[in-house]
Amino acid sequence: MNLDWDRLGPLLWQAGGETAYMVLITLVVGGFLGLLLGLGLYLTRPGNLLQNRAVFAVLNVAINVVRPVPFLIFLVALGPLTRAVVGRTIGIEAFTFAMCFMATFVFARLVEQNLVSIDPGVVEAARAMGASPLRIVRTVLVPEALAPLILGYTFLFVGVLDMSAIAGYLGAGGLGDFAIVHGYRQYDWAVTFVVVVIIVAVVQVVQLLGNYLARRALHR
């Protein structure tokens, strides 16, 4: 055990900052776009408020195609688009872009699955009271599915953290990169261990927070 914290400390701090940057941006952007995409998928499903077979089929297929692709391969495959949007295919911005993309599709499916479980009767009741589709989204769909949406979002966080480690390894920096460069490659298990502990602790805290908020949402 010869942890050189004077040297590693600032590097770890910086790595944590990079991970936070990737994860937070992805959670905000992917969460928002994923919510919209999920709502779109739900609403255009045959029999629902804005049913539209063509749009539904396109969204559904897109999500089914993107979601199961391993993130490492997805990163590479998205290269041309990343270059077009960000200007380059590596670096933290480029990888964050790819992460937002993937997170959007992952979360869209989670959102849709949670919305499907809402009793269609309450949507019908709102419609019978003259509510517009937009109002129904805002005042019925999201509030009624809030608890599972919070849990889904918590789940998304863990997935995004996972993606950030892969991105980090490919050169975006962050905790994953730190664990490999200063731990794994140096045969320094202590460093790897510290990073793992940090990640587990963060995931634990976020999960607890998510559970707490979801419970609050249910017990209102």
Binding site: G121, A128, M129, G130, P143, E144
Partner: peptide, 26 residues
């Protein structure tokens, strides 16, 4: 629709709102 009331077999109340909140919806 806003000028016609409707009630349902399964009541179809919003579980995310209180009784007062449900009645206030329309």
């Amino acid at each position: 629709r806003a000028g016609i009331g409707m009630i349902f077999q399964q009541f179809n109340l919003l579980s995310s709102r209180t009784v007062a909140g449900n009645v206030a919806y329309p």
